[in-house]
Amino acid sequence: MTGKGNVKINVWINEERLDALRKAGLDRLAKEEFAGMMLLEVTCTEEQKDKLLEQYPTAKYDSSTTHSIELLPREVKDKIFETSLQLRSTGPEVIENMLSRGGGK
């Protein structure tokens, strides 16, 4: 573990994903954003953020408003969601676990 996470990665949750979260007892972590679409906020550390941006050059960090990593490839976001479910967590251990397994690749 590399410290407390203060960088956000937003994962969209639809009905199908909400069902999976419910089964894992994590549905309370998803917050309603828009017309039934929910967001799961996974956090990571500054160090993990730098690693992700290095691995995925198309991704951007919004440092001024949302403090979140945007435009991560779809496969990476899928992987983050799966890892979050598996670890029953939304903390930095999700990204640490994913990076240790070679990221979303």
């Binding site: 994962v11 969209w12 949750i13 639809n14 009905e15 199908e16 994903r17 828009f34 017309a35 039934g36 679409m37 779809r74 976001k77 899928d78």
Partner: peptide, 9 residues
């Protein structure tokens, strides 16, 4: 993200 939106969206 390729996540299918809800029907309301």
């Amino acid at each position: 993200d390729g996540v299918k939106p809800t029907k309301k969206v």
